[in-house]
């Protein structure tokens, strides 16, 4: 890497005006990027735990799955995994649509569909896990 000790250094990526208005180039706050980052970090251990658990549940009966979810740790981690996954999925899909769909009407429709479907699927998963676990 080149020597950057004497180079001008900028810690803040947002312009002062952008900071005042709370807007970036996407006309939205940096909070979306931060949310994606936080869910990425939390999904690293959660994904490894999920794969480990699923390998353990290969060929399991319905009772065994329910029994697994009645234990507090799998129930808590499963709920965390679902919230992080569906948030991450919603933001990821929105980014893809914003990048590649330029016509206003299909873009709006797709973004609405992504929001709705992410919330619906997430809710279905969470309710199912709670019904089995509680």
């Amino acid at each position: 890497m080149s020597d950057t000790r004497n180079a001008p250094h900028v810690d803040m990526l947002r312009s002062p005006l952008g900071r005042v208005r709370g807007l970036g180039s996407a006309h939205r706050g940096a909070v979306t990027w931060w949310g994606h980052m936080l869910t990425s970090i939390s999904l690293v251990p959660l994904t490894l735990w999920f794969i480990w658990s699923m390998v353990g549940l290969v060929g399991a009966s319905r009772e065994e799955v329910a029994l697994w979810l009645t234990r507090p740790v799998p129930l808590a981690l499963m709920l965390l995994l679902l919230v992080a996954t569906f948030y991450h999925m919603k933001h990821g899909l929105e980014t893809v649509v914003e990048d590649y769909v330029h016509a206003a009407a299909p873009k709006f429709a797709l973004l609405l569909a992504i929001k709705g479907i992410s919330i619906l699927l997430g809710l279905l998963c969470i309710i199912s896990v709670l019904r089995l676990g509680l």
């Binding site: 999925m89 899909l93 998963c125 199912s128 089995l132």
Partner: peptide, 21 residues
């Protein structure tokens, strides 16, 4: 793969909802 995994959540939803049903 990100879009593929999003489609894959349908399978996870099916599995969990079926187990609860």
């Amino acid at each position: 793969t990100g879009v593929g995994l999003a489609i894959g959540t349908l399978l996870m939803t099916w599995w969990l909802v079926a187990a609860a049903t």
